[in-house]
């Protein structure tokens, strides 16, 4: 891994932190949408699996050691170990999965398959970590933790759409994943 790669990893961890300053958008049903969960999608779509996953890992470590980098100025182990901590941890495999799929589809990447990749990572992968985590930490059944979280799916799809437009334009202007032969 070159020094450039280290700089990209640091950059996307910083972008995650910068996304926290956007005020959360409230859905009519009282569910907040933060811009921050767009970070893992951007990291995976722009940097690929390894660098994207590591950048989100770095961000989660910074939050866990007590820096207030999460939306709303939150941070520390209290949040990471709390009921929704699994969704924060889940960002790491989500970014990795999105990056891995992006690398596989890099040559033929279009808005549709990129959107499906982003939704797969940010809904399927990160919920697969987040929901069992909530269930375990709260000591409740998996099904009981599952239903409330579905309220976040529309927001995640919206964010995936924005992330895909940004990532595809960046792919044309400043591609960082090598083309596959």
């Amino acid at each position: 891994m070159s020094t450039r790669d280290l700089a990209y990893i640091a950059l996307f961890a910083a972008i995650m932190a910068a996304l926290a300053i956007f005020p959360p958008l409230m859905l009519p049903i009282g569910v907040p949408i933060t811009a921050q969960s767009m970070g893992p999608m951007l990291a995976g779509l722009i940097l690929g699996a390894r660098r994207g996953g590591l950048s989100i890992l770095l961000f989660v470590v910074l939050v866990a050691i007590g820096l207030p980098l999460l939306a709303g100025g939150r941070g520390g182990l209290g949040i990471v170990m709390g009921p929704t901590g699994g969704f924060i941890i889940g960002w790491i495999p989500a970014a990795f999965a999105i990056g891995w799929l992006t690398e596989r589809f890099w040559n033929g990447l279009n808005p549709i398959n990129a959107f499906l990749i982003a939704v797969f990572g940010s809904v399927v992968v990160s919920y697969a970590v987040g929901i069992p985590w909530t269930a375990a930490v709260a000591g409740i059944g998996l099904d009981q933790a599952f239903w409330p979280m579905l309220a976040f799916v529309p927001g995640d799809c919206l964010k995936a759409a924005v992330a895909v437009v940004v990532a595809l334009t960046v792919k044309r202007a400043y591609p960082l994943i090598p083309a596959r032969s």
Binding site: L6, A10, A13, A14, I15, A17, A18, I21, L58, L62
Partner: peptide, 18 residues
């Protein structure tokens, strides 16, 4: 040392992005 560099860089990048 790489881990140290990457942490320092990330913290430096936040104000630069702003």
């Amino acid at each position: 040392t790489r881990i140290g560099l990457v942490i320092s860089l990330a913290l430096r990048f936040i104000p630069l992005i702003a």
